Each structure stands twice: as structure tokens, then as C-alpha cells.
Simulated scan of single mutants.
Amino acid sequence: MRQSQLDLLRLHMNPGIGRATLFKLYRHFGCFSAAVKASSSAWQQAGIRADLHATLLSPSAPALRAMQGKIAAQDISIISYWDDTYPALLKTIYDPPAVLYIRGNLPDRDCFAIVGSRKATPAGLEVARELAGKLAAQGICIVSGMARGVDSAAHQGAVDVQGNTIAVLGCGVDHIYPRENTRLYHQIIDRGAVISEHPPGTGPVARHFPARNRMISGLARGVLIVEATAGSGSLITADFALDQGREIFATPGAIRHPNSQGPHQLLKDGAQLVTDSSDILQALWPELLTARKPIRASIPPAPAPRPPVNLNQESLTVYQLLGEIPLHHDEIARKCALTPMNLSAILLDLELRGEAKQLPGGHYIRGSLSAF
């Protein structure tokens, strides 16, 4: 770790030193190395309380050494707002993070954000996954928050086509949240990066998530909302996007479904309608459109369910439990009184028969209900 990074880490590990204080220190002293060497009175001249200087960790502090070890072991990078590698578009927002912790590598590509409901419908998950895949296949990096539902589907869509994706976390980059996204987390690192403005070791605290939404929109040229209730946190991302001058997009949905309320209100307020990836490309990257293709409906009518054939009693029980609402593997095992190993074998058999479909995050629905 470079000395400048170590000095930044010493400052950022102080509980009282946040984004605003780091900006003050850098503006006054010109670099963080000079700031940690400065006296208490010099800090006061910079407009910073003397007690914060008094609690600054020493270079040999056990907590600092432990953090260095964690960062080295997990290959975590640290960059500040003043580094050349800091994302250029993120620098332009009103309140950019002073420091970023990164696992993986930030792709040097244009970014587009896709966010939405944690309790998305199967159709919404498929829409997010397909749109993300089509954009990623065009060389566009997909940004989201790795939450359950639409966020996970968007990341998975990029991974499916070997595209780039960035997950912005509301916790430290050493925390996988939710835990069910462990496999996806490592896939994202392989195809891009997980990033956070919080030091490693920071848990998923509720108050961190609204602030991370400004980073999701800040990294991207545009933001797509796929399913969101009227009070959804995804709409906070849309608000940030509006303040940051980003383009806002929304997908339509069933008019009486609660998850359609957010996107429909955005469309009424002037968001751009999306039924196909070409709508996004036309608005932001028209040069990538070689020919305008007919737009198909985002959610065509689902085919009628096919009756299962030759299922034993355990498989039939699992099949009958599956439906339109995604169920997690653990929940299915509990409700059907099956061991995880037995359930995995049954689900694999049902998938091969077309009677079940796996969704991002270890969720399953009945196969005949997937229609996009």
C-alpha cells in the first residue's frame, strides 16, 4: 500500500472524519500525507475540530494494521477523488465520495444504471436481465446495487453475455449482502467491480443505502427503473439522477400492479419509455444502432401451463409450490421438508423438463410463467 493510501486510510478510519472533512483537509493541506503530519492548531485553521486530530490513529495502531491486512488479503484498492483513476462522471455530481474502496477493476466504459424493486415479478426480473444483457453486449457497463430482485437480475444479465458490471454497495466491499448473492458477487468482481465509499468491515446499515443511490446514478449516463412501488428506494435513485442531469428511463407494467406505480409516475413526469434496449441506445448511444428493429412488447402473453408428466410425489409437491412469486431455495426446502441436496436434484430435474426456472439469487418460479 502506498504511503498516500495509508495516510488516507488513517484519516478515514477515524469515526468523526467523513466526506466533508476529507475534502476540507485536502483543500487546506494539498495532500493527505501533509494532513496527518500537521498539528492540531493547523487542523483548527482548516476549520476542523481539535478533538478529531487527537483521536487520529498512529501508524502502528493495531486497528490500522489489521485493516491493512484485510485490504491486502482481499485485494482491495483505495482511490480518492483526486486520483486520476477516479470515475470521471462521478466527479461531476454535487456530493461525490472522497474515497472509494474497490474489489475488481473499474471498467473504462460508459455506464448505464438499472435499478428496481427487491420484490420484482418474474416478468420484471426477466425484463431487467434481458435489457442489461443487450446493453452489456454493446460494450456498456451495467451499474446497480446488488440488492435482491431487479438489481441482481441486471448484474446477472451483464454477466450472462460476459459484459462489464459495477455493484455499488451500502456496506464495506468485504461484506456480501444479501448473502444469497455470494456467487453473483464474485462474478461481478470477475467482470468489473464492487465498490463502496465505506471502509471494509462496515456492515449493511439502513441509512447508508439512500446515499449509495447517488453513486449509482452518478456513475451512469442514464438510469432505468424497472418496477418500483410508490415509496420504493429506487425512486430515490431517479431523484438523484434528475438532480445530476442524467437521463431517466422507465419500463411500463400492468396498470394495477403496485410495482408499476413508480415507473408509471416517472413516465407521466417525462421519463423516457423503454420497451427494448434500442430505446436506450437511441437516446444515449445512437451510433451503436446499426438498424432500427421493430420493438416487441416487453411482456408478451404467457403460454398456458403444461401439466407435469411422470413426476414422483416429492417432485410434484415442489412443482405445485412454485408459481408466479419467486421463492428462494431455502424457503422451498423448508416448506417441502426436503434436504438442500434432495431439493437441488429435484429442481434441476424440473428445470430440464421446463417445469421450473431459476432466477438470480437462488430464486425459482414455475417454468411456464417465464415469458420475456
Rank of each mutant, 00 (worst) to 15 (best):
G218W: 13
L100C: 02
D349Y: 09
A136F: 10
Q358A: 15
G222W: 06
Q358H: 11
I325N: 03
L352S: 09
Q156R: 10
R366F: 05
K293F: 11
Q244H: 11
G157H: 03
S117F: 05
T55C: 07
Y177C: 13
G222Y: 02
V150T: 09
G233K: 01
P294G: 05
Y81I: 03
S217T: 07
L56V: 06
G362K: 01
A34M: 07
Q162C: 10
C141T: 12
G47V: 12
P263T: 05
K91G: 02
I48D: 07
V226W: 01
G203P: 08
Q45K: 15
V36I: 12
Q45D: 15
L224W: 08
P360D: 09
S39M: 08
F372H: 09
Q272D: 08
M341D: 15
A54Q: 14
Q187H: 13
I332H: 01
S77F: 11
P326Q: 12
S315H: 06
S344K: 02
P305N: 08
T237K: 01
F32A: 00
L89K: 03
A228Q: 02
L359K: 05
Y364P: 01
A88I: 14
A137R: 06
A297V: 15
S368W: 13
R191P: 09
L131A: 08
F209Q: 06
T229M: 12
S77N: 11
G245E: 03
A167V: 15
A333Y: 07
W82I: 03
R19L: 07
L359P: 06
N164Y: 14
P252D: 04
V127A: 13
P59A: 10
E247V: 06
Q313W: 08
L22T: 10
I299G: 00
Y177W: 14
A38G: 03
K268Q: 15
R353D: 07
A158M: 00
I76P: 00
A228L: 04
W285Y: 14
V36E: 05
K37H: 12
L289W: 07
Y81E: 02
D239E: 15
R129L: 12
V150E: 03
A61D: 15
D75H: 15
H264A: 13
L322I: 04
Q138M: 13
F209S: 08
D151A: 09
S260R: 04
K335W: 11
L100R: 01
A88M: 10
P62V: 05
D83T: 11
V205C: 04
